[in-house]
Amino acid sequence: MNRRHLLAAILAAAPIAAFADYPEKPITFIVPFAAGSATDQLARALGTAVTAEAKQPVVVDNKPGANAFIGAQAAAKAPKDGYTVFITTNTTHAANEHLFKKLPYDPVKDFEPVAMLSKGGQILVVNNNLPVNNVQDLVKLAKSKPGKLSFGYGSSSSRIAGEMFKQMTGTYIVSIPYRSNPPAVTDLIGGTIDMMITDMATGLPQVKGGKVKALGVSTAKRIPLAPEIPTIAEAGVKGYEISFWFAAYVPAGTPAPVVARLNDILAKANRSAAVTNFYAQSGFEALGGTPEDLRKFQTAESEKWRKIIAGAGIEKE
């Protein structure tokens, strides 16, 4: 090897060598939703697995509110060193750009994709005192009382699921925004709102605990965790189907060797007993792949959510 080739090889290896010991200190997971949300539960399960794999503690930092803008901004502005990881969903990285005229962050330019994590469906739940026992009952009641019923949402996925339901059933149900899904579920149990379509991890435990009634799931097929609950489509709203996904990102400009190492750590964590158990209890499906796979997936999902939002008749705010 001549001197020029030797120098080139040394320079190419230098960035990798510089980050060979990553991680050397605690890692922070920023979650743009409240404690108890599906994203929060996943982040904590992942954190446990990452700590075991990387031998460094993981701190989960919940920054809910403002349509997940707060968490996304904080993650985008974090140091580009791999010690702040954004555990998020299609809300921040595929839906928000089509729901709002202006975002305080750029879902593409401000972030470096790290890893796809999982995907899942949602569940339509209503207050126990609402005089309905199935989707058809709910539609009839809503049509008999236009503007009198309300649904809460604490994420773009939850919001769009509700708006799709309204559009496809020809009902007028008042939309009530929340900082995250857990506080909306609390109000649903208390009777402040009448219904919502939320993630399985947040809604299904309340159903099994008898605190709310489940009328349907948003997936194309029934979920193994609760096979007695019909899909919203088979319950009467033909063609209804919507799901969401989780993924990990870091600030744009984070060194490629760190991104590659994080991808490897998260891939192993995503197959751990703690995370696998969470998925099994929540009805989620594990995903995987390279950072480039996530980049391509996000592009395709952004277009998919653009069409869903347009089809639901939602205008940009």
Results as ranks from 00 to 15, higher is better:
T89L: 11
T28Y: 00
G203K: 10
P107M: 01
T28A: 08
A280K: 15
N128V: 07
E228K: 14
A35D: 13
F151D: 09
V185A: 15
V50E: 04
G210I: 08
T290Y: 13
I70F: 02
D40Q: 06
L103G: 07
G120Y: 05
G121Y: 14
F244C: 10
A12K: 09
K80V: 05
S118I: 01
D106V: 02
A142T: 04
L6N: 07
P227N: 10
D194E: 14
P131E: 04
I30F: 03
K307F: 05
L124V: 05
A269H: 06
E112Y: 14
A201P: 02
Q73D: 05
V108I: 11
S155P: 03
P205Q: 00
V132T: 07
F278I: 04
G82A: 02
P230A: 13
W305S: 05
K208T: 06
A74H: 01
A252K: 14
R271N: 10
E285T: 15
A13Y: 04
P26S: 00
L42N: 06
A35K: 15
F284M: 14
A43L: 09
F33V: 11
K166F: 03
T186D: 15
T91M: 08
K119S: 15
Y153M: 06
V58W: 01
G236I: 02
I308V: 14
L215R: 09
Y172W: 13
A267H: 14
K77S: 09
G289N: 04
I176T: 14
I232Y: 08
T48N: 09
G47D: 06
K148R: 12
G47M: 05
M200F: 12
G170M: 12
K102T: 15
T91S: 15
P205D: 01
L266M: 10
A310K: 11
R44G: 00
K221R: 10
T299C: 03
V237I: 15
Y105L: 00
